Simulated assay, not measured.
Amino acid sequence: MKNEIYGHFHPDERPFVDKAWEWVENAAVYHELKRTEFLDPRQAFIVESLANRNPDVALRLDGGYPDAERRRALIGPDYRDLDSEEMELRVLEAVPVDPGGLDHGDYMGALLGLGVKRGTIGDIHVLEDRCHAVVTREMADFLSIHLTGVGRSAATTSVLPIGMLRQAQARMETFEISVASLRLDGIASDVCRVSRSKILAPIKAGRVRVNWKAEENPAALLKAGDTVSVQGFGRFRVLEVGDLTKKGRYRVGIGKFV
């Protein structure tokens, strides 16, 4: 069974697959309830795929609001009412003295700079004068006590119930490119504004993800809706793929997260 499961996932994902399979097995066999850290969309997909293989297991994914990208998983035996269980989510509110110019990376860097794992932090919402970060209940007080500044600005913090979360709309710079094919290396090099030869290094090193899954094939074809992250260059989404032009090129709508 394990070898069959491995065939569906990238080799680099095997450690997480092993961990997720253990959660599912413990829920089915030993009736254990497991509440995970925050999972990225790819990890959540893996957990959901494994849970769906076992009819004796129930699964709930929750990141504090319906469109959350990073979510905690609650895995238990099928007779448990998981909707009534506490997901143990809190909102960490950080209010900088000078919020001007602070972005997602500044808040993320300040939080991770405290030595906590990425899995303790869910989605981060940068608002006009503050930030609301979804965090685990277990780490909320620690983060609130120790987060005293963001960027070069001092900041005050407080812990709020998840119902007080204020969401920020993802900011996206949209533009159109013209490419000879829908290959990953071609589109990524245009979006990141580097040569195709330079984009090959991060792709082959596993530092490029398509829909949160490592993609090491430069010739992989992208389609509308795909989200691509390139370590060191940020993240973008293929919004639409137009018809071929008279010169045999594709017009591709791109949304780059800023």
Rank of each mutant, 00 (worst) to 15 (best):
A133C: 15
F236T: 00
D62P: 15
L160Y: 04
A51F: 06
V91I: 01
E128M: 04
A51L: 00
R207H: 15
F9K: 06
P99I: 08
G63L: 07
R137I: 08
D78Q: 13
K2G: 14
K213S: 00
E128D: 15
Q43L: 00
P15D: 13
R14E: 09
F45V: 06
E37Q: 07
D56T: 10
P99A: 03
R152F: 13
F236S: 05
P55A: 11
V57W: 06
P77S: 08
M164H: 12
A20P: 08
I177L: 05
D18S: 09
T148P: 08
I121C: 01
A28S: 07
G149V: 05
L114T: 08
G7Y: 12
E128N: 14
D129E: 15
N217E: 13
E25H: 14
V17C: 02
D243N: 13
R35N: 11
V150C: 03
M87H: 10
V150F: 03
I199C: 07
D78R: 11
A170W: 06
V134L: 11
G186Q: 01
E13S: 09
L111V: 04
T245H: 03
V126E: 11
Y107Q: 06
R130T: 04
T174R: 12
E48L: 09
L111N: 02
G100F: 10
D123I: 03
A68E: 09
R42G: 00
E22T: 05
R235Y: 00
I145R: 11
T157M: 11
L165E: 04
W21N: 03
Q231M: 10
Y107C: 03
V252L: 13
A133G: 14
W23Y: 13
A220N: 11
F45Y: 15
N26Q: 15
I187M: 04
L221T: 14
W23H: 09
V194C: 12
V252N: 08
W212E: 01
I46M: 14
K2W: 14
L222Y: 02
V159I: 12
D243F: 09
G64W: 01
A94E: 07
R90V: 09
K247L: 03
L244C: 06
A224W: 05
H125F: 09
E48C: 04
D81W: 10
Y30V: 08
W23V: 05
M139I: 11
R171C: 10
A133S: 12
E128V: 06
G122H: 04
V17A: 06
H104F: 04
E173T: 13
L92K: 07
Q167S: 13
V230Y: 02
E69Q: 07
N26V: 01
A224T: 01
R130Y: 05
G100S: 13
G105I: 07
E25Y: 09
V252W: 12
A214Q: 09
R71W: 02
N52A: 14
V126K: 05
D243C: 07
V150G: 09
R70S: 00
V258K: 03
D12G: 02
E4V: 15
